[in-house]
Computed example of a mutant assay.
Amino acid sequence: MGKGLHGKRVAIGGSRKTEEISTIIEKQGGTPVIRPLQGTVYLAEKQVEPDLRTFVEEKADWVIFTTGIGTETLVDMAEKIGLKDEFLQAIRQAKAACRGYKTLAALKKLGIIPEASDEDGTTRGLIRSLESHDFSGKKVMVQLHGEKAPALMAFFEEKGASVLPILPYQHIPPEEETVERLCRELMNNEIDAVCFTTAIQVRSLFDFAKERGYINEVKAVFEERAIAAAVGKVTAEALREEGITRLLAPEIERMGAMIVELSKYYEEKA
């Protein structure tokens, strides 16, 4: 195993498995810097119940599922409030679309074959598969997971649909001090790479930078010096949506593969 990260300070944006990622970075010669860009994601049962009831009562022309766990959670929540049969019936009466193979598997378990699904696990891929459909005046229920998926929402609004988003999981923002510190470190050239393990972490950093007026400086750092490393396609897509074009994403969507890819990048550059 090479030591491509020798002398490099690598920020970890995740809050889970930080020890494991730190060890891999150290084995590659780097110094891990833990800067969690993701607060807690919690189950929002009380907030979701009114939306679930609305969906069951009013139905929808289309239902869009973006995560397997979110799909299963909505079914469980519907069961808890005594609406499982009605919820499943409302889904089956609508046209369905999904993002990701886990979501597709969750729908198949329910006996639902989607009309549209992505080819690459990304929101952009899902949007491409929906482009040819007419959403004008249609009601669309969208299951989200912890974040608002602005590109997907904008797509349906532009197509003339009325959207009911349902977020079975809500995201609590990270500590402001942590994000502020990372922004400062980036702008002071104290960080060589940032490892993002979810799209939420990307949004947290760039939304904070926009609010504080640092956005141009932070973007410039990623375009000119520090490397943004994404664990997979969805996270890489979130970076591109923020205007970051200089990034690394491994073929194998694993944290270890992301660090090895980063190490290789610096070895080749040396």
Rank of each mutant, 00 (worst) to 15 (best):
K59P: 10
S22V: 00
R99I: 01
V10R: 04
K138C: 00
I34P: 08
A236T: 06
M258C: 15
I91R: 01
G121M: 00
E177Q: 15
E224A: 12
V234H: 08
S132H: 09
E223G: 13
L107E: 03
D85I: 00
A97V: 10
V10F: 04
A106S: 14
E49R: 14
A249T: 15
R254T: 11
I112G: 13
I69Y: 00
L247Y: 06
A228V: 12
T66D: 05
A154F: 00
Y169R: 15
H133C: 03
K139T: 09
R128Q: 10
A44Y: 05
T66E: 04
E242W: 07
E86N: 08
F208Q: 10
A238S: 15
K233S: 12
D192K: 09
E242G: 14
V48R: 09
V41M: 11
S117W: 07
G68M: 01
R225A: 12
E237K: 07
G146I: 01
E190Q: 15
Y266L: 03
T123Q: 11
E237H: 07
K8G: 12
Q170G: 11
T18Q: 07
E251P: 08
A94W: 02
Y266C: 06
G39E: 00
P150Q: 01
V260S: 07
Q38T: 03
I113Y: 08
C195F: 13
T67L: 03
E115Q: 11
I227V: 08
I252T: 14
K159V: 05
E217Q: 14
T31E: 14
G100R: 03
T66W: 06
K138E: 04
I69F: 04
L104E: 09
A11T: 08
D51S: 09
P36M: 03
A105Q: 13
G13A: 10
H145E: 01
A44I: 02
P168G: 04
V75D: 02
L167E: 12
S117L: 13
E72G: 05
Q201H: 01
V231T: 05
I64E: 00
K148E: 10
R9I: 14
G4K: 02
A220F: 09
A105I: 12
